[in-house]
């Protein structure tokens, strides 16, 4: 069932509030019906996006085709509070509003990663032949990550299909002491907070060139974390860009940076830091200066790192990074205790 948005012009209001995918990156392969399902809108509402200036092409029969990441940004910036990207941000940041000890205390999870190979919102034609899926495995050697029930994971960064694990994540309440690291952190976070670089969905192909993305004025967690990592490496620090899953009601991948200090890697999460620093009332995200500060060195008990030190994608279809909607097959819930 398609439910019309409360305000028929809501989607159109998003156009111009974000930066569309560069022409050499964009893939205009998402039809109106698929877009309407993804945005919880009517096909007519989606059609108005083209008239409002959202880049598009047409198929051989003249039907509109949009870039999927542009559509996700329409959802993020339309202000209804009901689209999938808006819900994602609202639910992902809810734990920032909980009591500080709950960010770090040991917490056991049951995690299932079985990426969707088709989904509502899937680009046209993808259902014709289901792709081969490979997934990035959790980094069970990382501090604070403990597999339960004697489970063991295969060697190597990737596995075919998917997996289910029970895992205990233990956070760490700490900070980074080096003022030079603080200066680099402030530069990235303050640039995001000032909207000089816009936090929005970034196509995976553009994430691969994170310096270009930053120069174009767009960033997401992957771009910001890779950039922060590069800045620290250039200054001689031991740093790496991590990527994994943020566990909660709304499963999603997430990326952050780590810097080596005092004999351990400490997490630097520029996107969580900037979002919680400012808050986002229109998307139901409360500001939390305490949580923002905890993003500078603290490790949270809801982040499951995977086996990558350069924030590489978590899911692949054949050899290409999977589209955003594949995350629909990722779920987690707290483990019940007897």
């Amino acid at each position: 069932m398609t439910v019309e948005l409360a305000q028929p012009e809501a989607l159109v209001h998003a156009v111009g509030r974000f930066r569309t995918a560069p022409k050499d990156i964009a893939r205009y392969d998402t039809g109106v019906d698929t877009a309407a399902r993804a945005l919880r809108a009517t096909p007519d509402q989606v059609g108005r996006l083209a008239a409002a200036g959202l880049p598009h092409s047409r198929d051989t029969e003249g039907a509109l085709l949009f870039d999927y990441d542009d559509l996700m940004n329409v959802g993020m910036f339309c202000g209804t509070g009901q689209t999938v990207p808006e819900l994602g941000l609202r639910f992902l940041m809810r734990f920032a509003a909980t009591a500080r000890p709950s960010w770090f205390e040991p917490r056991s999870w049951e995690v299932g990663v079985h990426p969707a190979r088709t989904a509502a919102g899937a680009p046209q034609g993808s259902a014709a032949r289901l792709p081969e899926v490979s997934v990035r495995l959790p980094d069970d050697q990382a501090p604070g990550v403990e597999l339960l029930d004697g489970q063991r994971l295969p060697d190597g960064p990737l596995a075919e299909g998917g997996y289910e694990i029970a895992v205990r994540l233990t956070g760490a309440d700490r900070t980074v002491h080096d003022p030079a690291v603080r200066a680099v952190w402030d530069e990235v976070v303050n640039t995001l907070a000032a909207r000089d670089v816009l936090y929005q969905t970034v196509p995976e192909a553009l994430r691969e060139d994170h310096h270009r993305a930053w120069g174009l004025g767009v960033a997401d967690c992957v771009v910001a974390s890779r950039l922060l990592t590069d800045m620290l490496l250039e200054r001689g620090y031991q740093a790496r860009a991590r990527r994994g899953y943020l566990l909660g009601l709304f499963g999603s991948d997430h990326a952050w940076c780590e810097v080596f200090e005092d004999g351990v890697y400490k997490s630097l999460d520029p996107v969580f830091g900037f979002v919680s620093k400012l808050g986002d009332r229109t998307r139901g995200v409360a500001e939390s200066p305490e949580f923002a500060e905890a993003c500078f060195g603290g490790r949270f008990n809801r982040l499951l790192p995977c086996r990558t030190e350069s924030a590489q994608p978590l899911v692949y279809f054949a050899d290409a990074p999977a589209p955003y909607w594949a995350m629909a097959g990722v779920g987690a819930r707290p483990r019940r205790t007897a």
């Binding site: 609202r90 509003a97 909980t98 009601l249 709304f250 139901g284 707290p334």
Partner: peptide, 21 residues
Amino acid sequence: LRAITEIEDECDVVIPDDFLF
């Protein structure tokens, strides 16, 4: 989740994730 957000906004509360699980 959409229903939960509507309930929260209508009642001006935040329902803890642990309850929703």
